[in-house]
Simulated scan of single mutants.
Amino acid sequence: MVSSFTGLEPFQNRFKKMFECREPPLPQGLREELQALDKPEPIILPFNSARKIQKYLQDAGHPFYLHELLEAGSLHLPSAVTPPRNPELVARLERIKAKLANEEYNRITRNVNTQEINRNGTLADFGRQARSVKALVVTVLNFLVTVVAAFACSYMGSQYLFTEAPARIISAVIGASVVGLAELYVLVRTMEGDVWE
């Protein structure tokens, strides 16, 4: 709160003359206040002292107005004294700031894959693709071996029923077709279950 004037160097000589003046005598309290102002550093004059000086000068018949002080100087604004911060509170605030920064970082980087090295994917992606290709190759080979084995078995087993070769081949093709369709049915059902999972 503003409670004094500062920068009153033009009035310093007048204050010295008032201190040296014997007629009329200065009151003791005012004399002490003026003695405190007689120093080389910047003058800081409290409002109460300025009012006492004004009253004294008006009683003595000297024209003196408070606004002259404001024209020559300025209001003295004391610096605010901030109390020291509680160390427990500071430590707690630092922990909260670190926690919030960590949560923000996790929120920003939640969809970033640290394993991804380039556009084509990582070695793990390549492994998954290799496993799926391997499973596909094994399934196709299994289908082909099953159909060929069914054809061979039907062809060899039909020699007891048919003596001509074309009849044996037709019966072997029919048997291989039935086994192939059954194998395709099982394969489709398995793939459909994998898709839905």
Results as ranks from 00 to 15, higher is better:
119 R>T: 12
74 S>D: 08
86 N>C: 15
57 L>D: 01
69 L>E: 09
192 E>R: 08
194 D>C: 13
163 T>N: 07
2 V>K: 13
15 F>Q: 05
109 T>M: 09
43 I>G: 00
64 F>S: 03
182 A>W: 11
180 G>N: 01
76 H>D: 14
56 Y>G: 01
112 V>S: 05
53 I>Q: 01
156 M>F: 13
154 S>T: 10
165 A>P: 03
51 R>S: 05
164 E>I: 05
145 V>R: 05
143 F>S: 03
131 R>H: 12
158 S>D: 05
141 L>A: 13
110 R>A: 12
126 F>Y: 15
48 N>A: 15
94 E>D: 15
73 G>M: 01
30 L>G: 00
122 T>S: 15
49 S>E: 02
51 R>H: 10
117 I>D: 11
168 R>G: 03
28 Q>G: 04
182 A>C: 06
16 K>W: 05
8 L>W: 00
148 V>F: 14
151 F>K: 02
93 L>E: 14
34 L>R: 01
60 A>K: 02
169 I>C: 04
173 V>R: 01
99 K>W: 10
194 D>L: 15
87 P>Q: 04
194 D>P: 03
33 E>K: 10
196 W>Y: 12
181 L>H: 06
98 A>D: 07
137 V>Y: 08
77 L>N: 11
85 R>V: 15
9 E>S: 08
45 L>P: 01
132 S>F: 14
119 R>F: 14
59 D>N: 04
190 T>N: 08
130 A>D: 10
84 P>Y: 06
135 A>N: 08
13 N>S: 15
172 A>Y: 04
26 L>E: 02
140 V>S: 04
9 E>H: 12
39 K>T: 13
158 S>T: 07
156 M>R: 14
79 S>F: 11
178 V>Q: 00
116 E>S: 12
170 I>P: 00
108 I>Q: 12
119 R>N: 15
50 A>M: 08
101 A>Q: 08
51 R>E: 09
196 W>K: 14
75 L>A: 10
144 L>H: 02
35 Q>C: 08
2 V>D: 09
151 F>E: 04
70 L>R: 15
114 T>C: 07
2 V>S: 04
83 P>F: 11
104 E>K: 07
99 K>T: 12
56 Y>M: 03
34 L>D: 00
14 R>H: 14
68 E>H: 06
87 P>S: 11
